[in-house]
Amino acid sequence: MKKLVLLLVLTALTATTFAAPERGRRNNNDDELRNRRSRDARDSRYNRDSRRNRQRDRRYDDRRRTRPDPTRAYRRYRHTPNRDYVRHNRRWTTARDYHRTVRPIYVYNNRWLRVSVSYVDGYYWDYDYDYPYFIYNGYRHRYSAYDTCNYELVDSWSDSVQRTFYTYSCSTGYDLCADLRDELNDYEYDYRYFCAERYNW
């Protein structure tokens, strides 16, 4: 009787030991299906991210900023430089670093920065960003004595560049551009010319 019980126990253990690998064996078709689904999901995420990055990339944004109201009455204005060179903590090593912080809607004709604001004309210190600006005709211009800006004098009627003021500090470049702008606008008696940074994405 003991031998019979021992034989049954050994038979059961042997069957369990050799049957375990059979239960754990995978079907090759299941592996291929799982790999294909994983690959398709990865490709789908890549394509979706690529489309999103393309939409966010300003190089593909060709919207044109609306020009100022042409019916607005012109008022004579003479630019007065601000000689109070206040140091500021916010610095931009290159113009591109600053331009990447500006929303694409403020890029006019894919070439010029035209950040619209609701402040009066004149020198303006932005306490939130610790940075100086100069406001003219509803648009904001960088006015740092330490950062470099590439200002251009633009004819708004033809969207052509009349004069460039590159590699100057922002305040010096804007002062030079604004002086010439005011002379030409006075001659035309219209807001025909404007100063703007050349956009560098």
Rank of each mutant, 00 (worst) to 15 (best):
A73L: 12
R45L: 02
T17Q: 08
A15Q: 01
S118K: 10
R91G: 11
P70D: 06
S158T: 15
T16V: 10
D175V: 01
Y106T: 04
Y133V: 15
Y108I: 02
H79P: 07
Y166K: 01
L13G: 03
L6W: 02
V86L: 13
F165L: 07
N53E: 13
R76Q: 14
Y174R: 03
L184F: 04
R140G: 03
S171M: 08
R54C: 14
N89W: 02
W125H: 00
R45K: 05
N27A: 09
R64K: 12
E32W: 01
R52M: 13
T101V: 10
N47V: 05
R114M: 15
V102T: 02
R75L: 08
Y46Q: 12
C177E: 00
A15C: 05
T16C: 12
R87V: 09
D190C: 06
L153G: 11
R140W: 01
R103V: 09
N150S: 15
R111H: 12
A12M: 06
T93C: 06
N47F: 04
A20F: 07
S158A: 14
S160R: 13
Y187S: 15
R42D: 10
Y191D: 06
S50C: 10
Y133L: 15
A95T: 13
P70W: 00
Y85T: 06
R96Y: 04
C170L: 04
D126F: 00
L7M: 09
I105V: 12
I105S: 09
P104L: 00
H141F: 02
R100Y: 03
R39C: 03
D126G: 03
T148M: 08
G24P: 03
V5F: 11
F165E: 02
D175M: 04
I105P: 01
D43H: 09
P104R: 02
R65C: 02
F18I: 13
R23C: 14
S158Y: 06
D69A: 05
N110F: 05
D62A: 06
A41C: 00
R163G: 02
L4A: 13
D121G: 05
V115E: 15
T11K: 01
Q162D: 11
N35H: 08
K2V: 12
G24T: 07
N82C: 07
D186C: 03
R42F: 04
R59M: 05
R45P: 00
S50T: 09
Y151M: 11
Y127L: 10
E32M: 07
L33P: 00
Y98I: 10
D147G: 11
T101I: 08
N27L: 06
A19V: 03
D159W: 08
V154P: 12
R63S: 11
P21A: 06
R67K: 10
E188H: 07
P132W: 00
R91D: 12
Y146M: 09
T14M: 06
D69Y: 04
D121A: 05
R56M: 15
W157R: 14
T148Q: 08
Y151S: 11
L10C: 13
N150F: 13
H79K: 03
E22H: 07
N47K: 09
D186R: 05
Y108R: 11
V107T: 05
L6S: 11
A41R: 04
